[in-house]
């Protein structure tokens, strides 16, 4: 079994982003008498940044455990998904820059009545993604084109078939098993 935690640098960065955003948006709401629609907009943004800070705290307190049987998040709102019950996997890439450089990935797993989202700032993210892709291949899950291309970019083209594809596409697997 391997245990993974979010990198300290990434967590500190997320706290800084959330805190800065909260101060910038909540400050005017508290100290500047604004027109009502701007007050609502700024309060909405402040709430968003507040939620982000809380989520960062939850992420910092979470450990991801991966073994042959499945994946589990230990910590606040902990949950577990056995690989055999994996029903869906989605791998998405986000970047704020126009050239899409310097972005991050998010993997969302669903199965056994639970859902789990993991970000690429997790220590050993690629190893976790490799396990998830292998499980998706075993369970013959349909992968979206986006997920397939992102798995390819990680060098983890799983054997799971594409949407509308056939089981024979499993032969396309590149060195996962």
């Amino acid at each position: 079994m391997t245990t993974h935690r979010y990198e300290r640098g990434a967590i500190v960065g997320d706290y800084a982003r959330g805190g800065l955003g909260f101060v910038i948006t909540a400050g005017p709401v508290l100290f500047v008498p604004m027109v009502s629609w701007l007050t609502v907009m700024f309060a909405g943004f402040a709430l968003l940044f507040g939620v982000y800070v809380v989520r960062t705290w939850m992420r910092a307190a979470t450990e991801i455990e991966v073994d042959e049987a499945g994946i589990a998040a230990r910590g606040p709102l902990g949950k577990a998904i056995p690989w055999n019950d994996l029903e869906a996997i989605e791998l998405r890439y986000f970047a704020t820059r126009r050239d899409k450089e310097g972005g991050w990935m998010q993997m969302r797993l669903r199965g056994g009545g639970a859902a789990l989202a993991i970000e690429s700032s997790l220590d050993g993210f690629e190893a976790v993604a490799e396990r998830a892709a292998a499980a998706a291949a075993r369970n013959q899950l349909a992968l979206s084109q986006v997920t397939q291309e992102n798995l390819k970019a990680l060098g983890l083209l799983g054997g799971a078939r594409a949407s509308g594809g056939t089981a024979s596409a499993r032969d396309d697997r590149l060195g996962l098993e």
């Binding site: 990434a10 986000f94 970047a95 050239d99 899409k100 310097g102 991050w104 990935m105 690429s120």
Partner: peptide, 15 residues
Amino acid sequence: AWLDPRIRLGAGTGR
């Protein structure tokens, strides 16, 4: 980002 969250070849994850 919602419609097309694909990585672009040549771009890498930053964290």
